[in-house]
Design a binder for these strands. Sequence first.
DNA 1: TTGAAAGCGCTAACAT
DNA 2: ATGTTAGCGCTTTCAA
Lengths: 338, 338
Amino acid sequence: MTIRDVADYCGVSVSTVSRVLNNHPDVSAKVRNKVLSAVRELHYVPNISAQDLGRNSSDNIGVVVRGAENPFFVNLIHSIEEAIEAAGYTMIISQIPSDADELEAGASLSRSKRLKGLVFLGGCFNYTASEVAAIDIPFVCCTFTNEFGDLDSDSYSSVCVDDRAEAIRAVRYLIEQGHRRIAILLNDREDESVGQLRFLGYCDALKEAGIDYDDGLVEETGVYSMEAAYRAAKRLFARRDDFTAVFVTADSLAMPVLKAANDLGRKVPDECSVIGFDGLTMSLYSIPTLTTLVQPSEKLGEEAVQTLLNVIEGKAKHQQKVLKTTLRKGESVTVVSI
Amino acid sequence: MTIRDVADYCGVSVSTVSRVLNNHPDVSAKVRNKVLSAVRELHYVPNISAQDLGRNSSDNIGVVVRGAENPFFVNLIHSIEEAIEAAGYTMIISQIPSDADELEAGASLSRSKRLKGLVFLGGCFNYTASEVAAIDIPFVCCTFTNEFGDLDSDSYSSVCVDDRAEAIRAVRYLIEQGHRRIAILLNDREDESVGQLRFLGYCDALKEAGIDYDDGLVEETGVYSMEAAYRAAKRLFARRDDFTAVFVTADSLAMPVLKAANDLGRKVPDECSVIGFDGLTMSLYSIPTLTTLVQPSEKLGEEAVQTLLNVIEGKAKHQQKVLKTTLRKGESVTVVSI
DNA sequence: TTGAAAGCGCTAACAT
DNA sequence: ATGTTAGCGCTTTCAA
């Protein structure tokens, strides 16, 4: 059952059928109806592969997820999928390890699946214009931006929160509660990803409050995993007992920190406050409930897709959008008792 | 960059390149190597649409996820994606709400994306042969089976654990620790999904130990969400204080149960033991660490895809595979103190 | 072992 | 308004 069959059945040419199917204007109402009912009668369904080949494109949007072990991405991916689906496109997802090259993954996906556009999740984006040249389709960075690279702002889109400013807010909140010796637990302070930005925000907030930076209060997990976070937290607690609060740069890492504190008999928040970042649903049920900055994950996904589609469809230029987090006060932060 | 370019670059014909790319035998080692390195040098990636058109088929495998809010599916989806990718197919995912009709979603996906096969995740499978007739491609049920329907066992594949038997094992373990009054918290005891099977296993284990079933010890969340589980747990703890253990049919629901117990001052495990099901990574970091039955999620995904591909490629018939869980002893279950 | 050429089903100039 | 036809990039006979 091809377009040819439909054409023969109606006594018209294939191009006429193609026109009807693609809502082109130059078709008489009579013919259009005849074709449409033939399509229905014959249960004709277009062959997408042939369509794509003919158009030399597809309705595929690629989503490259770097470090899919981050639970924060789950909701995000879901909202991205919904937005892509709703717009009549197809999502092609590719999950790659945290240490993989997302540009290469994106470029290869783009070529093999003939993508219309790309969404990058969890990238580093320290890339330069020349490295990005391999990607010849519009793309949007979701939850991060080209902070460490030198891209032209009209060559890509991004939708994220201002990680550095939000981190300042988190640490400032701790300071407002009277904390002065504040530790930070993060993945890697120089990975040129959002973690580094949050680290910089931590430094900014300390400086702003006139608190000296103390390298011994910084603990890195090295890799992004709960297990690594648990071990890092244990190291930190073992090494120092003079800090009253810790900023953990992701909720999924903060939960192991709560566990480590518990296992070492360090009471949260009485002996040590903990603040996270991301706003995982799960962190509502940690013991104690995590205080955290909630990222607008639904909105991030929707906006990312919308921004990308606007570029693809020529409705708008590339944009950099910045959304806000919400401070969710849980039970893991308390006023410092001096 | 097409196969033509590669051919010209090597001074051979397109058919030769095609042969190399498709691992056809009749190519000399010399030419094969030349082509292979050219492919690498030129960063050639085949155009899937053209491949599909030429072969008159697609390499799309659909994955219909019902209730993607279940964190247990995250790893599973990842392993499914890897397996699909590794086999040279493309995953097309569709996440639908818990109350949606997965068969309809699958059938529609199948038609529009020309799927080769379907993986169902989190379905109910109380469907009958006539309802399934709408799906004219091979499919595999992952993490559940047609327990409540009347399908012919050679008309579909399934890869899952024996939920009922494993639930027996969980409850039996509690009984071995001396527990007699054991509550259960689940989604819905009659939803004809894995939850119901686990409920039946719970009943079996009680009966086997000569413990009377007590309807007042059964608490349903109604919908599948952590919030609902938290509220259900609070209801249960408020209503009864005579049970010493609770079996929660999913880890993601068990964590809110731990939280509810904590908030009500009910010590886990001293005053109440908790056992889960699934083996989320996150539940290693709950306070206390959850005792649970770990499902082999990687294996489930791999096997599901492999089984499906075997059918698609005509290498084997449909199969029903049953994998085993592993009891992971955490800190949430203790010997009952009488 | 290799090449030439005919499709695969559709789109989109280009004619009419 | 409609038809003709040349691709799109690849696979796969069929010849050589």
